[in-house]
Design a protein around this nucleic acid. Structure first.
Lengths: 117, 117
DNA sequence: TTCATATTTGACATCCATGGAAAATACACT
DNA sequence: AGTGTATTTTCCATGGATGTCAAATATGAA
């Protein structure tokens, strides 16, 4: 893979455990140990998941004594939002068109209602 | 993998070719052949990428004669946006805190500016 | 039916992520 | 130094995604 920053971000987000970790970290930093408890996964796996999130620049890790404190970075999640929002016009137009189709169908239904059924 | 709809979506978005295909499809439907041209990839691979996008419910395929027409679904991209936006408060608070830190630093700088080199 | 076009499928190799087990490292405390 | 805690690293197996080649399928045109 070439350097595909957004791709790395999406790959990191594809795992439900990692998304849950992000959700947890959005409420404040936590140690690896603290992140292990709720997940019924071994600490090694949590550590590996964190490494994945760090590589994707979603999380930063800082040493505090013998603990590693994980902190969620706001910028990267925002790039995901920015990516999705760039299609906002597309989906709003699509929904508008769908609305128009539904309205047209109802209109036809009302007009032809008595001749069909 | 268990059924993880959002995870499947993110996995599909992790590939730059597929994101480019989405970008193309956001400007209107296209055949597999039409999607192949700009990508310097074999038609089989494009076909497989499309299958991946269909499986992730990002694209729908409809037969028209001997062509398969691919259309971008608006809902799925919107779920990505919704997911990211649910962290909006987090990142806005983070940016605010960063702003505050920067302002505090400037204040200290201005106060101590003449005593330091 | 035959030929060309559009698309899919199968076989196969390669790479990377996932996850467990156990060893290794790093640090705090006595 | 020795003990317990926190975290990482290594080895290994499994599964899934990527990509190519070749063959198969489906449709349109002559």
């Amino acid at each position: 893979m070439v350097v595909d920053s957004l791709g790395t971000t999406f790959a990191a987000l594809s795992d439900p455990t990692r998304r849950a970790m992000i959700e947890r970290l959005s409420r404040g930093p936590a140690s690896v140990h603290g992140l292990t408890k709720p997940f019924a996964l071994s600490q090694q796996m949590i550590s590996k998941h964190i490494a994945y999130l760090v590589r994707a620049r979603i999380v930063i890790k800082t040493k505090r004594g013998r603990e590693s404190i994980c902190t969620l970075r706001p910028e990267t999640i925002k790039t995901v939002s920015d990516w999705a929002i760039s299609y906002r016009q597309f989906w709003e137009e699509s929904f508008d068109k769908l609305d128009a189709v539904v309205k047209q169908m109802k209109k036809v239904e009302a007009r032809d209602g008595k001749t069909h059924g």
